[in-house]
Design a protein around this nucleic acid. Structure first.
Lengths: 383, 383
DNA sequence: TTATCTATCGAAAACGTTTTCGGAAACGCC
DNA sequence: GGCGTTTCCGAAAACGTTTTCGATAGATAA
């Protein structure tokens, strides 16, 4: 019935069970097992991208020769090269980056993990990263941790699985353990921290003037006559929070103002939270005459609430915040801030990372501090 | 001197030139060319990721068997599977996504092209895209066109070169030719447009209520007694601009207000530009008593300028804008807007795309319109 | 027994590159 | 003409998977 695939005759072919739903046969002459494949209505095979092999075949040369022509190797006749390049463009050849990456062991892609892409600060950083990366021929893959430690860990794993050449990360505020970072670092993955860095590992870092900025803001408040300055601090776990709190304390100390723990409130950058702090402060016998929020958004929230309650700003309470956005300038009164340059931070971080990737062995981890600017506006100017 | 690589004797070996800097030799007995490679101080070979082959070797099975165990094939003994899984986790095996993608011809990655990541609207869309994509097991690669047509084209090419499985795109305002899109579409790449769509091609689209929202805003102004309503329109080239302008015109027409071309100004969403429009309008004999900006940021700019000049808002001039941000709520007077839901738009677009990718042949392109909301605030409320 | 069947596995091809190594031919020089 | 040289190119391996196809052993049915 069914002819053997080898001897083409059917007289010694017997059935031999089933495999994966198909009838199996055995030719006793050839001692060959085989299955009958139905004529299989041949698919029109959606037009593939042309490959190096296609180009080679079209010219009657070897794939390796085409590769040589494309990659500017010297080991090739210039006429041959020109012909190959001509045909390649003619056939609209585009190298398959996957195959290239697989072979070369590098993807020319960098991974970025940020807490929240919707925060203007991080969006700005991203834009800076994109710019530098693109110019250097790198692609960018972005993940959001949504301020969750477990998501952050998953993000890192996903990026590593995609074989990114390096990692840029700003930790979630939940993150207190850095095993996921240490693991990759041990495997040799270049990693650069920015903004919310981690001091447990030896990576290059880009940070803000957290201490200096806070110091400047608080000193400015003192200069305006404030003596009871409350602070809406950040999550205790974050390094940037404590650095900013240190700046606050240092400014007080310099000017001989005693620290009052009841004026310190640790928030989590969450909406509504600063109002709890405010409630607490307003209930004090001695109310604060100045408020410093380590996140400008918190400052704005507090200011809006104070305005609602008819407080005079800055006369009764002066307000300043860390970080800046258009809104801080447009709100009334406009908010005194320590202005940051997120775009520049992104550029710096990406530059460091790419440096680290390229000079993997000689690269020395360093910490770069981005300049910020004290921008004095109406919310604190008592003159 | 130097022994032949084959016969191991040196007595018939002669020099035969140089290749790539290395001495070349020829053994006349074996008729063999070969080069002498210096003992090459063996590199310690930076610890590779463990592969499927490593796992296979550790267990004495074939790589295909390991693959089967990992992929839940039925063609494997359950004990074997367990052993393989055990050893795989023990050796911390992670599949190489590059190799998988190369083989399967799909990357489980989607590409996104947006004009500007720093615009809160697009950041919101991105967040929505990320959420849906991640849940569906897709990674996201983002590019910015910076409102440049050529950059946009390069972005698309780069993403295609990275072999993304599909494309989400919101066009730059420069883009009037869509050849780069048509080309990829012809090659069978699933593409979904959002916000700034293009009606020349048959793709699935997600749009805002551009017409309806504008209509509602302008009708609201009319309801507040405005009769000379100026419009700060968008770039002529963008579909969303003309849709919004149509909404404006339709509202006027419905209420029997004659269209006055001198009240229409086409801006490019650029900072400072709306002020030129304002200048023009204030120079008119009959000044506008209402202003509609098709971009809320323009509305805010205009409002800030009018306040500087001591205009009464909304009494002398009422202002409304398309789109929303926290700043619109906090500025004084707060701005009446047509509120959008960028996150939801991102979710919808990503869902459509993934649908398109999975059901490539049966997928039918459709246009989905996102609901918006008229949010009436102080800048237009005269009562 | 013998013919068939099932369960389980390995070998090898394939995905699209790049790179290594050697072969063929032509060239130069005594 | 013999020797050393250079130029240009092809074959094949490698990157890490998945998939196809056939092989084998034991089980079952005839």
């Amino acid at each position: 019935m069914v002819p053997c695939k080898k001897c083409r005759t059917a007289h010694n072919v017997v059935k031999a069970g089933f495999v994966r739903g198909k009838q199996r046969l055995f030719c006793k002459t050839c001692e060959l097992h085989f299955t009958v494949s139905l004529p299989q209505h041949e698919e029109p095979k959606a037009a593939r991208q042309t490959t190096i092999v296609d180009v080679a075949r079209a010219l009657g040369v070897a794939p390796s020769t085409v590769s040589r022509a494309l990659n500017g190797s010297t080991d090739i006749n210039s006429f041959t090269r020109q012909e190959i390049l001509r045909v390649a463009t003619e056939m609209d050849y585009r190298p398959n980056l996957l195959a290239q990456s697989l072979h070369r062991g590098e993807t020319h892609t960098i991974g970025v993990v940020i807490p929240d892409i919707e925060r203007p600060f991080f969006a700005g950083v991203l834009a800076g990263i994109q710019k530098v990366a693109t110019e250097a021929g790198y692609r960018v893959m972005i993940c959001q941790s949504n301020e969750s430690h477990s998501t952050e860990t998953l993000n890192v794993q996903a990026l590593v699985a995609s074989r990114v050449d390096g990692l840029l990360i700003s930790h979630s505020k939940e993150t207190t353990s850095f095993e996921h970072i240490k693991l990759q670092l041990k495997k040799g993955l270049p990693i650069v921290h920015f903004d919310r860095v981690c001091d447990e590992v030896d990576t290059a870092k880009v940070v803000q003037e957290d201490f200096e900025g806070s110091f400047a803001l608080v000193e400015h408040l003192i200069g305006q006559g404030c003596r009871r300055i409350a602070v809406c601090a950040g999550p205790r776990e974050l390094l940037i929070s404590s650095a900013r709190l240190q700046g606050y304390k240092a400014a007080l100390e310099k000017h001989g103002i005693e620290l009052d723990e009841s004026l310190i409130y640790h928030s989590h950058f969450k909406k509504g939270e600063p109002l709890l702090a405010l409630e607490k402060w307003l209930a004090l016998d001695a109310r604060p005459d100045g408020i410093f929020a380590v996140h400008y958004a918190n400052a704005i929230e507090i200011m809006v609430e104070l305005k609602k309650r008819n407080f005079q700003i800055p006369q009764e309470v002066a307000i300043v915040g860390f970080g800046d956005e258009l809104i801080a300038e447009l709100i009334e009164p406009s908010l005194t801030v320590f202005h940051l340059f997120p775009f520049a931070m992104g550029e710096a971080a990406a530059s460091l990372l790419i440096d680290n990737i390229i000079h993997r062995d000689t690269f020395m981890a360093s910490t770069q501090k981005m300049r910020g600017e004290l921008r004095i506006r109406q919310s604190s100017l008592r003159s």
